[in-house]
């Protein structure tokens, strides 16, 4: 049931993220779909493959690749059943049924305009966060040598 080869797992993650990007395109959010392909398929999946190659290589360790599979799977199944039951039975969602998605197309120009006017402070904070996270990641993963500070 589980893939033992880690590189295969990472490539399957890339395939499923491409599928999710297609769902975004179907929802009418073309910009988000292409962002998804660029960031997740292009960057995060490749980063995961690099991390796999930098740690142990592709082969799984001998022995089981999962820990306590049945309890974990039953928890996930219970969560799915609860969520699905809530979605199907919800009275709030039934109110959304009248809204049709037609008649509105998302323009990238609009997103850009919103980003530099209404959401400019979150955009700046995001830039700061990304810079801090990347510097932190480099410092954490830096190879330590003797006598080096």
């Amino acid at each position: 049931m589980c893939l033992r080869n880690l590189v295969h797992s990472a490539l399957c993650l890339a395939v499923s993220l491409v599928g999710l990007a297609l769902v975004y395109l179907g929802l009418g959010a073309e910009f988000i779909g292409w962002i998804q392909i660029l960031v997740y398929v292009g960057a995060v999946s490749i980063l995961i493959v690099f991390a796999i190659l930098l740690t142990r290589g592709a082969e799984a360790p001998p022995g089981r690749v999962t820990v306590a599979p049945w309890s974990g799977l039953s928890v996930a199944l219970a969560v799915f059943i609860t969520l699905a039951w809530t979605v199907i039975k919800s009275k709030v969602l039934a109110g959304f049924a009248g809204n049709s998605p037609g008649g509105y197309t998302l323009a990238v120009k609009e997103i850009g305009g919103k980003l530099v006017t209404e959401y400019v402070l979150p955009l700046q904070v995001m830039g700061l966060l990304l810079t801090a996270a990347l510097i932190g990641a480099v410092i954490i993963a830096l190879h330590e040598r003797k006598g080096w500070k």
């Binding site: 089981r64 690749v65 999962t66 820990v67 306590a68 974990g72 799977l73 928890v75 996930a76």
Partner: peptide, 9 residues
Amino acid sequence: LAGALTRRH
């Protein structure tokens, strides 16, 4: 969630 709970790597 199932992946995060069950995989060892």
